[in-house]
Amino acid sequence: MTSLHGIVEMDDRDLIACAQQGDRQAFTELVCRHQNGVVSLIYRMCGNPQQAEDAAQEAFVRVWQNLNSYKPQHAFRSWLYRIAANAALDSLRRERPSTDLDSLSLADPSTGPERSVEENQRTAQVREAIAHLSPPLRIVLILREYQELSYQEIAEALDIPTGTVMSRLNTARSQLRQELLVLMEEA
């Protein structure tokens, strides 16, 4: 077992290698490092924080179970996000997508009440517009806009050609622009 200090200093590649030998401490460090990315990705897909956390935990369990199929020559993030995207889609199939009202009330307290209401409305509209996209378009958009993956990384994560990534991204953006036209003009 590697010491805690050693683990924190290790890069992802070494952590994965240790986790592949059954080192749970190394795997825990990997989970901590990538929790934010995975939960955010799934949250953007399904729109419910609780559902996102649950699906993210499921995704990490799948990562643990499939660690031996990971090939180091590929980007870990792409591989991880592929599993996360599948977990999100499975979660969406199991439960109806919903927008959590609690998460909408998390506005910046420094702004006035009118501003908060306005922001919440805008946020709800954006989330609704994203939810209206078909899952293949939505996942490409989320990976690019929120997770900031390159086209190549998205292609690897979803196992599709780079050209398909570009065309899906263009379609998703066009649809969003049509749906959010009023908001964009206001901005």
Partner: peptide
């Protein structure tokens, strides 16, 4: 506009 939408606080 998309990025202005924050992710809720996580565990």
């Amino acid at each position: 506009l998309l990025k202005a939408d924050p992710v809720p606080q996580q565990t």
